[in-house]
């Protein structure tokens, strides 16, 4: 056997440094990361990176910061497995491996000039935030902006400070609902679909961008279609098991799509015939 060192392997990870790390909730950790080999990750909102912890493994993690924030990028990681639990141990100053950005992000150039309806369920706010912030930083380029956020309890709301800012902005309509309220909660109680009928929108001009747990999509999409939003204008981001990130390992396949390369962002009309997708 002969051995070669490869300089262009797609599995080679880029070295990066954690410059800020903090626990957001019991199970979610926030990381701010800078690359060592480049000033910027140069990603699209909605793309993801493979985060690598040598000796443990890699996990696909959505980028939650907008590319308009230059020089760093942000991740929010839920502790659900071996790799994510190792990521949770990262502190500021630690080194971490990054591959990517990977995948097809949100179609920002198509969204421009249109009204937007963001629908985020639970952890769905994480990838969606990359687009929300992008839109807010380029606010003039978009039409009306509605944001609907649904969480299990008020404690589960991520980015609380930022969400409070969205709430106060005059150029964003923001509503939030929780499944189970606590005594201090003054907002809506109920599933996220209950917020949709009340949104004032022009269906022809509106793109709905939906990210949430798998179970949420069917119900939300049904409501959006009821509102008259065309299938092509309903955008979703799907979660799948991923191992390679480069469209080979097969784990993330949804019919003829590889979620890691062809997704994770799809329009509803692309996947509605696909019995495995939603």
């Amino acid at each position: 056997m002969k051995r070669l060192e490869l300089v262009d392997s797609p599995y080679l990870v880029r070295e990066a440094k954690v410059c800020e790390a903090r626990q957001m909730t019991k199970s979610e950790r926030y990381l701010k990361i800078v690359l060592k080999d480049a000033h910027d990750l140069d990603h699209e909102p909605g793309q993801f990176v493979m985060v690598s912890i040598a000796g443990v493994g890699e996990a696909p993690i959505s980028i939650c910061s907008s590319p308009t924030k230059e020089g760093y990028f942000e991740l929010v990681v839920r502790n659900v497995g071996k790799v994510t639990s190792a990521i949770h141990k990262l502190e500021a100053g630690d080194t971490v491996g990054i591959r990517g950005p990977f995948g097809r992000g949100f179609p920002v150039r198509i969204l421009e000039g249109n009204d937007l309806l963001f629908v985020a369920g639970g952890l769905g706010i994480v990838p969606l935030r990359s687009l929300v912030d992008f839109v807010i930083d380029n606010r003039r380029d978009f039409g009306r902006v509605n944001i609907l956020l649904g969480c299990r309890t008020p404690q589960d709301i991520l980015f609380r400070d930022e969400v409070a800012l969205w709430e106060r902005r005059i150029d964003v309509n923001f509503s939030c609902t929780v499944d189970r309220a606590d005594p201090e909660w003054k907002g809506h109680v109920g599933v996220i679909t209950s917020l949709i009928p009340g949104v004032d929108l022009d269906p022809d001009r509106t793109f709905a961008v939906v990210v949430g747990p798998p179970i949420m999509y069917k119900f939300v999409i049904k409501e959006l279609l009821k509102k008259g939003i065309p299938e092509k204008q309903i955008i979703v981001s799907l979660e799948r098991h991923m191992k390679c990130g480069v469209g080979k390992c097969g784990h993330c396949q949804i019919a003829d799509y590889y979620c890691c390369q062809d997704g994770p962002v799809f329009s509803y009309d692309e996947i509605k015939e696909n019995i495995e997708a939603l």
Binding site: M1, K2, L4, L6, L12
Partner: peptide, 8 residues
């Protein structure tokens, strides 16, 4: 880290 491959 080093990306490697073996062949024969």
């Amino acid at each position: 880290q080093k990306a490697v491959m073996e062949y024969e």
